[in-house]
């Protein structure tokens, strides 16, 4: 079969004069300035939205009692006092609450990461009956209202004599942190190629060694992100700590409410000063570990 050859046409493109680089720059500049202004405006608005509560906390913490309650409120304080920070420093009980918070949050973070690493690895790299059911079961615990679980956990801990102990706090916090940590870490382990595991097996590494010396270092950012999430959860919890702890094991959130919020009065300036101080460890942890946090949270998002 023959086909008629189409006549070859050559269309000459009109030749446009290429502007010199300096002129191109000049033409792009207004666009760039416009998009820059839009971007900075967006950043400023979002930043303001996020930072305003923090600023208001600071203003209230630095205001004398009378001024903190004036109406309409003053955006820039006219009188400044450090009295509320001083009263926090002088309160030994608050220091005890802080120590309890550090202990409980750190153990929660460590326990969550350890357990979630093994569970996530198992869900990701092994195939066995009931795997999917177990994965869904782990996730399902996130779907119950916390107040409902509080009553159940309270009854269980009471039966086992764990009320008022660090163990009760750590176990209850871990109940809530673990599902997300497991799924986060499973996603990260999914991105580790099986070929790497096979190579390790060929070289004679046991499964145990493969996980600890090859996979875990690769998943470190994810593990740090999971740990940070668990730490913050343990640090901020109020209702479980209030219900399951006693005077000696009370953590900061219920401790602060106990100290500053009363039936008729709330010492807002002192509460704000205390809240600012106690947020320092969490902010410091975030600043120190933020590059891992971002990397860890997104590591499992895309599979190779």
């Amino acid at each position: 079969m023959t086909t008629a050859e189409a006549p070859v046409q050559t269309v000459e493109e009109p030749v446009r004069p290429t502007p010199p680089p300096a002129a191109r720059k000049l033409r792009r500049r207004p666009d760039r300035i416009r998009s820059s202004i839009a971007a900075w405006t967006a950043v400023a608005v979002i930043g303001l939205f996020g930072m305003l509560p923090m600023y208001w906390m600071l203003v209230t913490a630095l205001s004398p009692k009378g001024q903190a309650f004036q109406f309409p409120p003053k955006f820039i304080p006219t009188e400044i006092t450090f009295e509320h920070f001083r009263t926090f420093a002088e309160n030994e009980q608050l220091f005890d609450y802080m120590v309890n918070s550090v202990i409980v949050a750190l153990i929660t973070a460590a326990l969550s990461v350890i357990v979630s690493t093994y569970m996530g690895y198992s869900f990701s790299k092994f195939r066995y009956r009931g795997r999917k059911s177990l994965m869904n079961f782990v996730l399902a615990s996130q779907m119950f209202p916390q107040a409902l679980l509080l009553i159940t956990l309270y009854a269980v801990f009471r039966q086992f004599g764990l009320l008022g102990t660090y163990t009760a706090l750590v176990l209850s916090f871990t109940t809530f942190t673990m599902p997300l940590c497991v799924w986060m870490l499973k996603g990260i382990f999914d991105t580790v190629p099986d070929a790497l595991l096979e190579a390790a097996a060929i070289d004679g590494a046991s499964r145990w060694r493969t996980l600890h010396t090859i996979v875990a270092p690769l998943a470190a950012p994810g593990m740090i992100a999971a740990g940070l999430f668990a730490f913050v959860r343990g640090w901020n919890d109020f209702i479980f700590a209030l219900t399951l702890a006693n005077k000696d094991t009370m953590t900061l959130p219920p401790g602060l409410v106990n100290t500053y919020i009363g039936e008729f009065q709330t010492s807002w300036p002192a509460l704000m000063a205390a809240s600012l101080i106690v947020s320092v460890p969490v902010v410091a942890a975030f600043m120190f570990l933020q590059r891992y946090l971002v990397g860890g949270l997104t590591a499992g998002a895309v599979k190779s």
Binding site: K125, F126, R127, D194, A201, R207, T210
Partner: peptide, 9 residues
């Protein structure tokens, strides 16, 4: 042998 196929015993 893939680790994913080594279990299930």
């Amino acid at each position: 042998m893939s680790a994913s196929r080594t279990t299930g015993a």
